[in-house]
Structures are given as C-alpha cells and as structure tokens.
C-alpha cells in the first residue's frame, strides 16, 4: 500500500465483500429452493434458509428424474455430460498436440497451408454454421450418439496454437541431442516433448473440461432421444415444464447438480485454471 488510509482500506474490503455476496446470492437462493417441498416455494413466502427435503429432492431428480416433464433421471444426464466433456477435452488435447508437433518439428510441403486451415476454425463457431453442420452429422448417421455429441467439436485452433507456442520455446538443443543420440521423431515426442508439456496439458484440460461440460446449442441440435440429453440442455426442458407444473424445487436441484462439477474443477485447480485462461487468450 502506498499510504495509510484506514477508512479507504475498510471501504475496499466492504465493496469486495458486497460484490461476493451479490455473486453468491443466486447460488444460495437456488440451493435453498432445492431443499424445500414445492408448497413452500409456491405459497408466496420465499424461504431464505434451507428446508428439510434435501435428500428427498436430490434423490428424486437423480434416480427418477422429473417424470411429469417427460424427463429422464438426472443421473443419466450427468453421465452423458461427463462422457461428452471428457471426449471433447481428451480429443482436443490429443489431436492438437500431434498437429502442433507436425507443424513445429517437420518441414514438409503445404506446412503453412495446413496451419492456416486450422487457424480458420477460430472464425467458424458452431453458431454461424448451425444448419449445414447438423446436415453433415445427420448424413453420417451420428445423431443421438456420443460420437455425434463430441467429434464435431474437437477441432481446436486455440489448443493447437497454445502447443505450437510452447514447442517453439523448447530449446533447440533438446531436439539436436535427441537426434545425435539416434532418437526418432516418435521417441523424441514421447520421451521429451510430452513430459515437458505436462503443465500446459493440465491447464488446458481444466479450460476445455469447462468448455465441454457447458456446451448447450450442439447437444440441443443432435439429441432428440432423451437418453442422450446432457444436463445443461436438459434443464431447459424442465424450466419450460415448470411454467405449467410447479416443479421449481426439482429444477433447482438439477441446476445445482449441473453447476457442481465445473465449479469444483475451477476451485480445486485454481492455479491451473488461471494459467489456462491467460494462455489460451494469447
């Protein structure tokens, strides 16, 4: 601190704490609503403290789902989300690693053309090519499948860039030494480059897991079969139902469950998360 102004310091703390309270408020309200029977929510007095139906409500959504909303168990949706998020994350990291390796460590015709082709994907988010992409996936017979949910999303310019940048900082001597010692390209990649990239891979994993888990538009397009619904898009079906049927307590329990995995990942792996966030924006 530059100078001692106790009032200002107190004010700073107060403002930040107020900000945190406002940020956390929606979660608290949601959590409280998810622990009450529906009558408490509908009778006009909004509860501010958790009720006694925590286990009952969560067991209902996890095990049976919201049958009145034509839903399936939230447990199934959580599983689908996990499969989709992990496939996208691992797929993106794997294909980006080898693509960046090829671009940085090999000299071959059309090297820059390949690089630009990958770069272009940055400018084509799903949102701008909804219908034709859907048509491709439908023609390949991938609707309502895990492959259809994840494969079209695993091309990643950002991840390829990140690894490219990182490989360029790896000292030349390492490749030279490896070559002199007779290591081939595969051995060099596996025994030297991969271990060096560990932190980058971990940081990217956190960012991409959140990205994969939070996908909304894509699952909405490619799943019509309820058993392939992911939780983030499944909630929407429930809120629409809650407009006519009073199901808010169950919708809120599902919302809590949808938030929990990515939030835990961010809080537990905060250092990697911040690193990943800053590096992917470079």
């Amino acid at each position: 601190m530059v100078e001692n102004r106790p009032y200002l310091t107190v004010l700073s703390h107060l403002v930040v704490i107020l900000g945190i309270i406002i940020t956390v408020m929606p979660i608290w309200i949601t959590f409280v609503a998810s622990t009450h029977p529906i009558e408490h929510i509908m009778d006009g007095t909004i509860p501010m403290w958790p009720g006694d139906k925590f286990f009952e409500n969560y067991a209902t959504v996890l095990g049976a789902g919201v049958a009145d909303a034509g839903g399936i168990p939230v447990g199934t949706m959580l599983f689908n989300s996990l499969v989709m998020a992990l496939s996208i994350t691992i797929g993106k990291i794997a294909i980006s690693l080898i693509a960046a390796y090829a671009i940085v460590y090999f000299d071959f015709p059309f090297r820059m053309a390949c690089f630009w082709l990958i770069f272009i994907t940055l400018m084509l988010p799903v949102e701008v090519r909804i219908l034709p992409t859907f048509a491709v996936v439908a023609n390949l017979g991938l609707l309502n499948s895990y492959v259809g949910l994840s494969l079209p999303l695993i091309a990643s310019a950002t991840a390829t860039f990140l690894f490219r940048q990182f490989f360029l900082t790896v000292p030349e001597e390492l490749a030279e030494a490896a070559r002199i010692d007779g290591a081939g390209p595969w051995k060099f990649f596996k025994d030297i480059l991969l271990p060096l990239s560990r932190t980058n891979i971990a940081a990217l994993f956190v960012i991409l897991f959140i990205y994969g888990w939070n996908q909304y538009l894509w699952p909405l397009l490619v799943t019509t079969d309820e058993s392939f619904y992911t939780i983030v898009m499944g909630i929407q079906r429930m809120t629409q139902a809650a407009e006519s049927l009073p199901l808010w307590h169950l919708v809120m329990a599902t919302t809590m469950l949808a938030m929990l995995p990515p939030v835990i990942v961010v809080v537990v792996m905060q250092k990697l998360f911040v690193k990943g966030l800053v590096e992917t924006e470079k």
Partner: peptide, 15 residues
C-alpha cells in the same frame, strides 16, 4: 469471485 466462470450460460440464465 472467479468460480462463476465455470457456470454454463444456460444455467446462469436459469438462476
């Protein structure tokens, strides 16, 4: 303060 980043836009909307 950083965790809301992990909340999906759709979920933020529902909250």
């Amino acid at each position: 303060l950083i965790w809301p980043y992990a909340v999906a836009p759709a979920v933020a909307g529902v909250l």
